[in-house]
Design a binder for these strands. Structure first.
Length: 487
RNA sequence: GCCUCCAUGGUCAAGCGGUUAAGACGUCGCCCUCUCAAGGCGAAAUCAGGGGUUCGAUUCCCCUUGGAGGUGCCA
């Protein structure tokens, strides 16, 4: 069969790309790639009021960052363009008039104000508002004359008052509704532009889209679109309605509530590959135990049968784990290149061995934006509580800490080679001579020079990074403080 | 209100009439260890409720409940 798979991602340029949209784009892209088909970008900008400046560029940028390359689109061209709906403005009306000729649509002269009033009145009485087909009964000749005379009008779909409308979804199966629950929706607005309801049908047909993958919010209006296809005598594409990505059980992810967009995540220090991997598995299962996928692997593995029918909650904790896994596996130089800017926010590269620090940090990094807080103590001794000296397992308390510092301080003061190896040998020898246990000395020393309960390395590594003068100074300060507190 | 859809642990989820109901994140415990991570081992935790159908329901049907979406000259 020469049935070519052609999918489309059709966002509105209303701002940043939120994660639900990104996932829809990803699945749509994967469906095309898996089947050797074409992935098309179409911009749906028929609502001039909601359009955001630069919105189209944001779409391009997000898709590029995500690696979802499209075969046809506004900026790459293609055989069925233009790919921006506002640039297709003039081609919709003739199709609408064709429907009028066929009796499947009709011009309507009711003003927005009139309709709002009638709708409000109906709602006040607790009734369901539906357009009453008032203008359907205007004789065709009269309607044409009024249009020709320049009167404002819209074109409405003429939905049958009886019978059923239905369509088949690859995930949800047969979806059917009674026509009398459907409204005569506007197809062409007073400004001459089509509504989504109409444009999606025309464009999907003209662009020869084979599989329509879109958000769940269109599931209940899809039967209505099938009426349009039938009126035109066009073959319908196959549908897959995708579930939303949730913040919790009842709320979608939303920028307004402070939830991050895809680009926000990248700015925070998440890796593109990790986000893609995580998003792919949020609402889709490969049916195997495999959990790590590159984009290329997803292109092979994707199967719509694994798509979920219920919404998925976006779990930032699991994303962190995925991101950590990707970070830990990075070649060190790549890791260092990513980490360096974050470290330099709080550390002077001339003063610290950032490379060595990064080696210690890699297995401890889940998200790059955690780094500054993890290392800021190196630049400046933080305030800390002497209770940190007390550690049951290490068998230490302030008393022991003081003794430990007395063991370590002279050794460190006398050390000329401030390498980790020299530090290690000198300290271990002194500890052995003192009769104390390693932990009893090293724990307090580490607390004394870092002020932190946990650090990216042990006492020796931290002392090395901090440097001799500062390490000695911090130990002396700690000794003075402990002496004062214990007396 | 009406219409459509959905429903397995805290979260992502496998399952598609017979299973000890996978796996992952997280949580907890143990090991390793100069802290924390990383790594290794182990544990707890799920079929929303009620009716059917069936020899047998997580699985099929109905109802209830809960949730989502739609009900715009927004997409």
């Amino acid at each position: 069969m020469s049935q070519t798979v052609r999918t489309r991602f059709a966002p509105s340029p209303t701002g940043y790309m939120h994660l639900g949209n990104l996932r829809t784009a990803l699945y749509t892209y994967l469906m095309a790639r898996k089947n050797g088909g074409a992935f098309i970008l179409r911009v749906e900008d028929t609502d001039q009021e909601r359009e955001v400046a630069g919105g189209i560029e944001m779409i391009y940028k997000s898709l590029r960052l995500a690696g979802l390359t499209y075969d046809e689109g506004p900026d790459v061209g293609g055989p069925v363009g233009p790919y921006i709906q506002s640039q297709r403005k003039d081609l919709y009306a003739p199709y609408a008039w064709e429907l009028v000729e066929k009796g499947a649509a009709y011009p309507c002269f009711c003003t927005k104000e009139q309709l709002d009033a009638r709708r409000a009145a109906a709602e006040a009485k607790g009734e369901t508002w539906k357009y009453d087909k008032h203008c359907l009964h205007i004789p065709a000749a009269e309607a044409k004359a009024r249009v020709a005379a320049g009167e404002a009008y819209v074109i409405r779909q003429n939905v049958p008052t009886t019978g059923k409308a239905s369509f088949d979804d690859l995930l949800y199966g047969h979806v059917e509704v009674d026509c009398d629950t459907l409204d005569d929706n506007v197809l062409i607005k007073a400004d001459g532009l089509p509504t989504y309801n109409f444009a999606n049908v025309i464009d999907d047909h003209l662009m020869r889209i084979s599989h329509v993958m879109r958000g769940n919010e269109y599931l209940s209006s899809a039967p209505k679109y099938s009426l349009l296809y039938q009126a035109f005598g066009w073959e319908q594409p196959l549908y897959m309605h995708l579930t939303p990505v949730m913040k919790d059980a009842t709320r979608k992810l939303s920028k307004r509530k402070g939830d991050p967009s895809f680009e926000d995540l990248l700015d925070m220090g998440y890796l593109t590959e990790a986000v893609i991997n995580f998003m792919a598995l949020l609402g889709w299962s490969p049916g195997t135990e495999q959990e790590f996928f590159t984009l290329a692997e997803l292109e092979q593995a994707f199967d719509p049968a694994g798509l979920s029918k219920s919404p998925s909650v976006f779990d930032m904790v699991k994303l962190n784990w995925f991101n950590g896994e990707y970070i830990h596996k990075l070649p060190f130089d790549t890791y260092f290149a990513h980490a360096k800017p974050w470290l330099e926010k709080v550390l002077d590269p001339a003063r610290f061995d950032l490379r060595r620090l990064a080696e210690m940090l890699q297995s401890r990094t889940d998200v790059f934006n955690q780094l500054p807080d993890m290392v800021s103590f190196l630049a400046e001794m933080p305030a800390y509580d002497s209770a940190l000296y007390t550690h049951k397992k290490m068998k230490t308390d302030p008393q022991v800490a003081l003794a430990a510092i007395d063991v370590a301080l002279p050794v460190l003061e006398g050390l000329s080679d401030w390498s980790e190896a020299a530090l290690h040998d000198a300290l271990m020898a002194a500890i052995a001579a003192s009769g104390m246990k390693n932990g009893q000395v090293l724990w307090p020393v580490r607390i004394a020079i870092t002020g932190r309960e946990s650090t990216p390395g042990g006492a020796i590594e931290m002392a090395y990074l901090i440097g001799k003068p500062e390490s000695v100074a911090r130990l002396k300060a700690a000794r003075a403080r402990l002496t004062a507190e214990l007396s």
